[in-house]
Amino acid sequence: MTYLSYFKAECLALFRTKQRVVNALLFFVMVVVLFPLGIDPSADFLSPAAGGIIWCAVALSVIVSLESMFKENYVDGVLTQLILSGLSLPWLMLIKVGVYWGAMVLPLLILTPIFSEMLFLPSDSLWVLISTLLLGSPGLFLIGSIGAALTVSLKQGAMLMVLLILPFYFPIIIFSSAAIKAVQLGMPYGGLLALIAAISLLALVVSPVMTSLCIKASVR
C-alpha cells in the first residue's frame, strides 16, 4: 500500500458510491429552495439573506456527506489495515478528506451561481461568496472528519456527530455570512476572509492528527 494507491482507491470508491455525494447535493438544493418558499420570496428579504442561506445549506450538506465517511471501512476492517499499513495514518486521513472535499466542492461551486441568482444575491457579492466557500469548506470537511471518526464505532452516531461538530462550524458560518454582508454594505471584507482561511488552516493542522487518534481509539 502506498499513499498514491490509497488515493486512487479512495477516488474510485467515492466514484462508485457517488449516490452519497448526490444525496448531499440534493439536500443542499432542497434547503436553498425551501427558504424562499417558507419565508418570503421577495428580493428585499432574500438579497441580504442569500449568503447566510447558502452557507447554512452548505454546512448541513457537508455533515450529510461526511456522516458515513468511515462507517463501511470500519465494518470491513479496512481501517485496521490502514493503521497496520505502516503508512502515516494522519496523511491517509488527509487524503480521504481531500477526496471528499474535491467531490463535494466542485459541484457546489457550479450550483452556487445558479442559486445565488435565484436568491437575488447581487453579482458583486457572488465572488465573495465563492471565495468564502473555497476558503471555508476545507475547514468544514476537516472538522467534520474528526466527528465522523469519533462516532464511527457507534450504531446511532449520526446525531451525536452533528451535536459535536456543529459548534465548531459556527465561526466559519458567521464570518462567511458577515463577509458577504460587508461587501453588500460596501465595507472592507478582507479581514473576514483572512479569518476564515485561518480557521481552515488551523483545522488542516489539527484535524488529520485528531481524526487518526479517534480512528485508533475506535478500532479495537
Binding site: M1, T2, S5, K8, D76, V78, T80
Partner: peptide
C-alpha cells in the same frame, strides 16, 4: 514485517477484486 488478516476482510466493498488487490500491492 508482518501481515495481519483478521475477521474483517479489510477490503473496500465499493471496489472490484482487482482494484482492491492493486490498492494493496501497487
Amino acid at each position: 514485517k508482518s501481515l495481519y488478516i483478521g475477521h474483517g476482510v479489510g477490503l473496500n466493498a465499493a471496489l472490484t477484486v482487482m482494484e482492491n488487490l492493486s490498492w494493496y500491492f501497487p
